[in-house]
Design a protein around this nucleic acid. Sequence first.
DNA 1: GCCGTTTTCGGCCCGACTGTTTTCAGTCG
Length: 587
Amino acid sequence: MAVTNEEISELFEDMASLLEMKGDVIFKIRAYQRAARTISQLPQSLELAVRQEQELKKIPGIGDAISKKIYEYVTTGHVAAYERLKADLPDGVLTLMNVPGIGPKTAMLIAKETGASTVEGVVKAIHQGRLQELPGLGERAAENILRHIHSLRTKDQRTPLGQALPIVERIIADLRERCPTLKKATPAGSVRRWQETVGDIDIMGTAQDPVQVIDALVDLPYVREVLVHGPKKASVVVDPGLQVDLRIVEDDSFGAMVQYFTGNQQHNVRLRDYANRMGLSLNEYGITNLKTGQIEKFADEEGFYDRLGLQMPPPEIRQGLWELDLAQKHALPRLVEQSDIRGDLHMHSDWSDGREPIEAMMEAASRFGHQYVALTDHSSGRGIANGLSDERLQSQIKILRTLEGFPVKILCGSEVDIRADGSLDYPDELLADLDVVVASVHSAMGQPVEKMTERIIKAMHNPHVTVIGHPTARLLGSRDPVEVDMEALLQAALETGTAMEINSSPERLDLKDTHVLRARELGVPLVISTDSHSSGYMDKLRFGVAVARRGWCEPKHIVNTMPLEEFMAFIKAPKSERIHIFAGRVD
DNA sequence: GCCGTTTTCGGCCCGACTGTTTTCAGTCG
């Protein structure tokens, strides 16, 4: 059975909770929590690392004891220390912690004193008045617990970035319109880090009249509920049900504040640890000299990091992994930017399921500033998407080859279905006429992992397949990714010279950030495409660029940053040679 | 349990909020 990093991360998170219940040393507990959070965002599967006998201790926050436990879990399926802890404590204590407001201490107290081991048991204990009598708890606490039980912590209460970002932009625009004194305004938190989903929205600003801005937020027509309304801070819930926190701060502490609220938490923990060793203490107001007690303020983040002798890491890679080590050496990578992208290799016209004619798409691509663009309408297997028959594809190719009047170089392409058995929808002779072939899975998504992996790898071995489109076929919040051995796909991509797509569509973001980081490590060619179905969609490119940045990609890691001539040479070369061309770029 | 520009021992991020407390513990981000 495959062991996922997520599973291992949860195990250590649980171990930390159990240790806290037992009243163990807080620093040991923190160590487990740190390890858990680091593991949840690692690019590479720990199972694989163990099997390849790699050194786990190189991972920050993982030392002797934890690496041994990882080894134990991967090889035996359980961790003895964890089982012992669980056996020592009342049943169900971990379940109780699913209620917001109930942490390890309270869970332990409730389980021990009331015997409740389920959420229902807690409700019963409250109705019987037994919970209220416990030391440290009272009527208010019981009321809060009851209220929170209705909004149980579940994993999927996060909002896709694609939905959150337009809301942020609208709020900032509306505040600007209503408050002339609003100076700076920027999102912080997971939005600024371009995380694929966000829990809430943080906005930081400076203004001559903070009250005016705070009041303006509270009065916005799409504010559904006001949670907090103070002179410098407000928290509201806006229409689709998303919490927005706005803070207005003094100009001179804006840098420290934005840094603090951008996180992520792991990054901040490591940064403050690092600062402590310099005799400095960090908080959201500035940098304090521990000896003199003097506080320095910072109007911008660059100054803040600079005071610590660090290069400022882009928000997307503030992950608490290795960014601070590189920042210290002033050796952070120059991450890819939207302006580096020279072409879009995945889009549809009204020949299949796009909404606009070819000409409109080409006009938009030209306006966007692309040097080249591939039209990739669906293949015949996508009946529902009005996929092109062999004959229609042939006539489309003819039209595209003679289309004139666009500054952008037009490439003939197709998004061809990878059928359930790994064969493709078009014969090889037809595929050979195309410049760019994006091969994607759109059907039989429930296949077991071995079959799905084999299926996609078979498509990679086709000499005409340029790119694998949205490799896991997930739809954020609505469709789980297909089960596939990503490591095997990436290895096959290397062997066959096939590129992997970063699909920029905000509901896909597929490959995802951690896959991209792994692909980058291995040297797999990556492509950032939009999968546009209308001309207005092309600017979704920024989402794909953000995923690439979260995967630490520089321009050289992305195939479609190549200028036209270089790109044409790349796709004209046989696949077996492409990986060498690409590697020459990366070295 | 982890880690090293002061340390292989002795430190370990920081503050806000809440509800329960008369000075703090627990939870959260």
